[in-house]
């Protein structure tokens, strides 16, 4: 940074005269701390401006000083009064019977107002609690319905289950393919038992293998690897001898896997 050039842009004057935005001001102040020359230039302009303004200054009316002194004395007194008021104790005075009655009815009224407010608050709290419960209930029901559907699928007679074990690449990985071989559509579902979270530019891809050739069965969203939904719907496949999962660039590979194989299972 060329300090001389920076100083000569008018930025110093702009700062001193208060014509900058907050961010600009902060930047200038930071630079002043770093570069002595900028602070010196600022001080020079400040002094020049000050001298000019002091030179032919109009005198304010004489009564103003007293008014200002009064205003300031007022501020100081208020501060003192405030602290004194806190220390002050309630004065004890004797009061007649009617004052007692008035005081008692005031106390009663205050009591009933308190009760009313209290009841109302409790009612509101209960209402809120009820609403929360209802919402939680609805969520649970929804979740239960999903699990039920999954469970029904698992119980289907022709459902084949293929455990896929981790390769030497990732020995702890494990997934399961569920393949509905009786239905006409031959639906394929995946259960992610355990897979490491992939990098954000990578995605897992499921393949079926038939006569040594890979068939793309679709991608697994990275968020689902983390959340592990019970059954993950993949692409259908009519025939397969084995299933495998590889790690591919996001979006997957079209014809054949290019990345490392994580799990594999034979039928």
């Amino acid at each position: 940074m060329n300090i001389k050039e920076y100083i000569s842009t008018g930025i110093v004057e702009s700062y001193v005269m208060g014509l900058m935005t907050g961010a600009e001001r902060e930047e200038f102040e930071a630079l002043c701390q770093q570069h002595h020359e900028i602070a010196t230039a600022r001080n020079a302009f400040e002094t020049a401006l000050e001298e000019q303004l002091l030179k032919d200054a109009p005198a304010p009316p004489a009564f103003l000083k007293r008014k200002i002194d009064d205003a300031i004395a007022n501020i100081n007194n208020n501060k003192v009064l405030e602290t004194e008021e806190v220390r002050e104790e309630t004065p004890v005075r004797s009061i007649g019977i009617w004052k007692w009655v008035a005081a008692a009815s005031l106390v009663l009224m205050a009591g009933s107002v308190y009760l009313a407010i209290n009841t109302n608050n409790k009612y509101k709290d209960l209402q809120q609690a009820n609403l929360t419960l209802e919402q939680e209930m609805a969520q649970s029901k929804e979740q239960l319905a999903l699990y039920k559907a999954d469970a029904e699928m698992l119980q289907k007679p022709g459902m084949k289950m293929v455990g896929m074990k981790g390769t030497s690449m990732s020995p702890h990985s494990y997934t399961t393919v569920l393949w509905d071989t009786t239905g006409a559509t031959k639906d394929v579902y995946l259960l992610v038992n355990n897979l490491p979270q992939p990098a954000s530019d990578k995605q897992y891809q499921l393949w079926a293998l038939l006569d040594g050739k890979p068939i793309d069965l679709g991608m697994i969203e990275n968020a689902d690897v983390r959340q592990k939904p019970l059954l993950y719907r993949m692409k259908n496949v009519q025939n397969a001898q084995a299933f495998a999962i590889t790690l591919e660039p996001t979006g997957g590979s079209k014809n054949a896997p290019t990345g490392d194989m994580y799990v594999m299972g034979q039928l």
Binding site: S8, T9, G10, I11, E13, S14, M17, L19, A44, F45, A48, L49, E51, Q52
Partner: peptide, 14 residues
């Protein structure tokens, strides 16, 4: 322009 006006102003002050 405001910056260059300020530079002029500074020159007039000193």
């Amino acid at each position: 322009r405001i910056r260059s006006a300020l530079i002029q102003l500074k020159a007039l002050l000193s």
